[in-house]
Every structure is written in C-alpha cells, then in structure tokens.
Nucleic acid binder design. Structure first.
Lengths: 213, 213
DNA sequence: ATGGTTATGTTATTATTTTCACAAAAAGTG
DNA sequence: CACTTTTTGTGAAAATAATAACATAACCAT
C-alpha cells in the first residue's frame, strides 16, 4: 500500500488551491484544479475519494472547505518543529528559507554541524554542535530532520538520528540512506535530478519518436 | 512510454557504482548493487536490459564497464552548460555548489536575476540582468535552465525560457509550470517534500497497520 | 414541478510497473 | 570433462496506478 504519491499530489492541490483563493475564487472543479495542478480530473477525484474528501455534485468543491480538509489531514494547525543537520550551502539556504516553511507551520528550530565555525545563529536559528543533537531531539520531541551533509558522513549521521528517535528524514546527501523500515526517508539528489532533466531534454527525444519523459 | 523513473534509478546506480569503485571494488552483482541503491535485483537487471547494458552471466558486472555505459548514456564526457534564473536563497546555494555539478560535467555558466543588486559574480558565475537571457541562451546553445524564482513570476519566466529555446527546466518555484509537451519540466517543491515526510513520519502509521509510505 | 444539464463519486477497464520464475551461460570443482 | 553452483536476462504473472465510463445527485430554467 503505497500512498506517497497520493500525498504528494494532495500537497500540490493544496498549493494550487491557495493560489486560487488568493485570486478570489470560491469554488474549484476537478477539471479546473486538474488543469492547474497538471493532473487529470479523474485522478483528483480519486485522490480526494481516498482521503474521504467530498465535494458537491454539480457544484464542485468549495475552496475553503477543501483547504480545511487538507489542512486537517496534514496537521496544518499544530506547528511542526524540525531540525537541520549540516549548515553548508544547501543547509544554509533552507535555514534562510525558514519563514517560507513557517507559513506552512513547519519550522526549523535548530541546526547542527560538526564544524565549530558554523556554531552561531543563522536567521534566528541556533546552530549547535552535533553532540547535543540526540539530547535536543529527545527533549523537544523532534520527529523529523533535514540532512544536508556530505555523502561521506551521511549514513553515520542518519544512524545517530534514528537512534535519537527521529522518524522521518529529508536527505540531500548524494547517497541512499539505509534505515529501519519504519523510518521514512526521502532522498533528494539535486545533481541527479538536474542530470535527468538534461537527459530528457537533450537525448530522449529522437529515439523512438514519442519517448514521454 | 514513461522512462523518467528508469533514468532516475540509473543515475542512482551510477552514484552507488562510483562509491563502490572508490572503495576498491571491481565487480558488482545485481544483488549487491540493489542493496546499496535500495532497489530489488530484478529491477536493476530490467533497467539495464532496457538500456541495452549487458553483464556477465555468473560474473556480475564490471564496475568500470558499467560506468562507461552509464556515462555514455548520460553524455558524461561533453560538458553540459546550464543557466540559473533567480539568485535568491536556493539559487545562491546551487551556484555555490557548482563545483559539485562540475564533477558530473554539468556547469552553471550564468545566473540571471531581475533584482539589479544581484548583478555581480557569485562563485565565478556571472549574474546578468534578466533581459539578456534570451540572447545568452541562443548564442550559447543552452538547452536547460534551473529556476529558483518566486512563485509569482515563475510562469512568466518559464514562458521566456521556452521562447528562448530552452528544452528542460528544473523548477524550484512552488507552482506547477505549464509548457508545451516537448519541454521537460521537473517541479521540485521542497516545502511539499518536507511536508510529505512529516506526514508519513507522524500520521500515516497507525491507520491500517502497514501503511507503506 | 419537471426535465435537462453538469460535475461528482465509484466501478470497470486498461496500462504500467514490479516481482516472480526459470532457462541459459559462465565459472568453479573433483 | 561432466557436474554443480551462481548470476544474468527475459518472458509470464501479479500488483499498482491511471483512465474511462457511467450512474447519481444537485442545480437551473422553463
């Protein structure tokens, strides 16, 4: 039972709905939302159905109600604290973006780094030495961490996080992390993503005519 | 015919193979590579098969040969120039990471921004005003761009890129870009990714027992 | 009211992806 | 040199996901 894709789409729908609301719309239809989100209307109805979200026959969906439902699903109202491990290029950018996360009620409450020169505040976020991480996680009930560390130390740090009680990791290190099944790991390899776009844009077109990519 | 997933996995395999090589290994087996890449052995053989990559019955795969094949597929040898639009938080981080891209023969050759205060060099990369982008793209035969701009201006900039002749876009703006079918677009919404990890880590576990996420 | 229209919700169908299963080739062994 | 073991490569089967189809409810106009 794999629901990660559903969830990702729901989040995308929410993003579009927020824009629709800002534009002053009150209602959406699976058709209009689908066009905005780049998804088929049937897919949207299926996704909603799966999470028990109901619309109005003939009347589409009330944006405010939809957003309420989605926010309920994703726990919008509670502020969710996360930590950041590794305050290099990417880590720094994420720390600086924190107010963007905050709008969605996600908040980087602390950064951690092995490098002592990084131990300072960045954008109001305290950056602490790696050693205090486990205690911080336990004391603050942190369940999710963002890893932006070099590949070489990534698995070790992942183990530390798991031992400290972390249940989900968003990983930017170019390595496939190994962790117990119950820990959710999302590996984001920006280099690979760029490379796949380059490949699809340049090479994958004249192979067999229509190589959807 | 959808091959984006295959490609993504191949890139992941390559990443693992590079590590294996660094560790001094000469051969891999679908089994060992699979464990490292978090993929089943059959999947690996299928992926290789699809791209005409052959191994040795009983002898597995020679890492050097595999890497040659993969580098051939992904055009490792030619240096691929890309441009960056938007030099804010994320854009800056990517520009600073350029040497990492360079190792893979991908290189951000220029950044562009509307904000005049951003017009300067970052990490050897010239940042130019937005207006000169189309000419730059045409004169340098750029086919792929990275967008790290605010959502509000994203679609407009996407259109500019497409008009200038760009064939692939890696987009960090929180919006689903619309472009002609032949233009490859990869939307990366970091906020949504984080949120999906949080959801899977915190909520999706006690629903039906085994909610694989 | 009542009939027509429209958009949902869900079932059925199709397509895609992954896993399974096994034949065939290579390498080792006695 | 036969025999066993091991690992690939691929066709068949199973599982998943996406699309199509359509019955049903709500709304609107007459």
């Amino acid at each position: 039972m794999q629901i990660r894709n559903n969830i990702r789409r729901l989040l995308q729908y929410r993003m579009c709905l927020i824009r629709f609301r800002e534009l002053g719309f009150e209602r959406v239809y699976s058709y209009s939302l689908g066009r905005e989100a780049g998804v088929s209307p049937e897919q949207i109805r299926k996704d909603f159905s799966r999470f028990g979200i109901k619309g109005n026959k003939r009347g589409g969906y009330l944006i405010s109600e939809l957003l309420d439902s989605l926010n309920y699903i994703f726990g919008k109202n509670e502020l969710q604290d996360v930590i950041l491990i590794g305050v290099g290029n990417i880590g720094m950018a994420l720390a600086r973006y924190n107010c963007g996360f905050f709008k969605r009620r996600k908040y980087i409450v602390a950064g951690f780094d092995i490098d002592p020169s990084k131990i300072r505040k960045i954008n109001e976020i305290p950056v602490l030495p790696m050693e205090v991480m486990p205690r911080f996680v336990k004391e603050n009930g942190i369940t999710v961490g963002i890893m932006a560390v070099p590949a070489i130390s990534a698995q070790e740090i992942c183990n530390m996080l798991v031992n400290a009680g972390i249940k989900g990791i968003m990983n930017f290190a170019p390595i496939v992390l190994k962790a117990p099944r119950e820990v959710v790991i999302e590996n984001i390899n920006l280099c690979n993503v760029l490379e796949s776009v380059i490949y699809c844009a340049n090479y994958a077109r004249d192979d067999l005519g229509v190589l959807e990519c």
